[in-house]
Design a protein around this nucleic acid. Sequence first.
DNA 1: GCATTAACAGCCG
DNA 2: CGGCTGTTAATGC
Length: 223
Amino acid sequence: MTPQELTDIAVWADALTQDELPQAAAGVRMKTFERGQHVAHFSDYLDAWHGVIEGVLRVGHVSDTGQVAGVSAILGGGWFGEGSIIKDEARRYDVVAVTDAEVAIMRGDTFRWLFANSVGFNRFLVQLLNERLGQFIAIVGRDRTSSAVVRLAHTIAAMYNPVLFPRTPAEIEMPQEDLGVFAGISRQITNKSLQILANDGLITLIPTGLKVLDIEGLKDYGG
DNA sequence: GCATTAACAGCCG
DNA sequence: CGGCTGTTAATGC
């Protein structure tokens, strides 16, 4: 793709020099996935770095009983998969499109070239990893004690982390069942909790999704 | 009480 | 029909 196209879809493109930008852009292409399609399978050897341009992906792994565990969402502007490239190993998770999604794919050698040469790119990676770590620590801290509504509110708020997902739209298209998986609660309680949050004026419900009205309110919900 | 699963009817493409 | 939504009943921690 062209440097301009890359700048339009990736915030980290701004951190590259004039020399680096065309190199990066040349190694990135777009691909669309339909709801339910796998972007990456567990144990796949995928030599690529992925960015979500539109839609929602779910990363996690599936147990033998079909239960999904250890999941997190990736949405607008979120990039992932650098661990497998840097460590040169197979994927440790399944990545599935929860909604129809548009995904940018960077070739592994392009990633490694930026990793070896671009100061700005590495700064972005450090910031990305740091933010992701903070998000997981926050989950561990609140998971045991909090109620379903609070968990759901924080789960939704986390989808608007400006570093991890700088382009998440106000309206998120996502079935309540998948939202429940991200929050770690059942579909029925997800439905009830969504109605409570809507009653509080933090969100409104739309067909197959929700519209966020008050991100700060969700973040601070329940304490 | 609160959450989970199972099962239901209603809605919509 | 098939997927999503909203609700209720039965059960468990």
